[in-house]
Design a binder for these strands. Structure first.
Lengths: 127, 127
DNA sequence: CTGAATCCCGGCGGATACTG
DNA sequence: CAGTATCCGCCGGGATTCAG
């Protein structure tokens, strides 16, 4: 009852103004899928995450994690009272629901890499 | 037998140099998932595709379609002998295997939009 | 170790004009 | 209708430096 207004329409990524597009863009961001996949079933420290996601810069990893934290996909836990700084990251419940999606993306990418490379060769060479 | 070399390792998106990362990036590109989803189960003309993917510029749609064609995900069919120019696009077999993946991305984005927006409010307001 | 702050460049991507 | 070509702003994202 409380929302019989215009904003109560079903989200649709094909609509130009729908904010769900932003969420779709989030999934596709360069390091998001890797971070989500890395945190599947385990808690990782910043440094571990950085080593796992080969090539990620400190800046981008921090930036990605902040965004994921803000969006409620990952939880950040800092231990300041230790000898050395220690921060752990884990998936939230919401974040876990994204795991199958990014896993599918990863699987598809790895499985069809050869076919795509082959197609590129034929596309360039066949012309 | 012909490939017992170093290149015969399993693709892994977490490896810095693995080309599967490029494929993963492809899936995440701004208009790719929308185009793939739009072409699911049907053949569409350029203009139709452009109207469906609201907000896409002519340049980006062309660019996206060219890339997808080159990678063997979509097939392009031009009919030059018509009164007016007419070009149709459809998914290739390879492209069809990507449909479930992008569908999952779309579903997740639309389904969890509210939760994410809520999380953002709490993140900003709770501080 | 974790992270904030800057500098800076390549290129994504939109707007516009032109072609077949 | 379906592109190609050009100009250009914006920002993603890397390298580096500084701080707690």
């Amino acid at each position: 009852m409380e929302n019989s207004h215009a904003e109560n329409v079903a989200p649709n990524v094909y609509a130009a103004v729908c904010p769900s597009r932003e969420v779709l863009a989030l999934i596709g961001e360069k390091w998001v899928s890797l971070v989500i996949g890395a945190l599947d079933q385990r808690v990782l420290r910043f440094g571990e995450l950085k080593r796992i996601c080969e090539g990620v810069s400190q800046k981008m990893l921090t930036q990605t994690l902040r965004k994921l934290e803000r969006d409620g996909l990952v939880c950040r836990q800092a231990y300041s009272d230790e000898l050395v700084m220690r921060v752990e990251y884990r998936l939230s419940e919401l974040g876990q629901t994204l795991v199958p999606v990014v896993a599918a993306m990863k699987l598809w990418a790895e499985a069809n890499l050869k076919a795509i490379e082959q197609s590129r060769l034929e596309y360039g060479g066949g012309a």
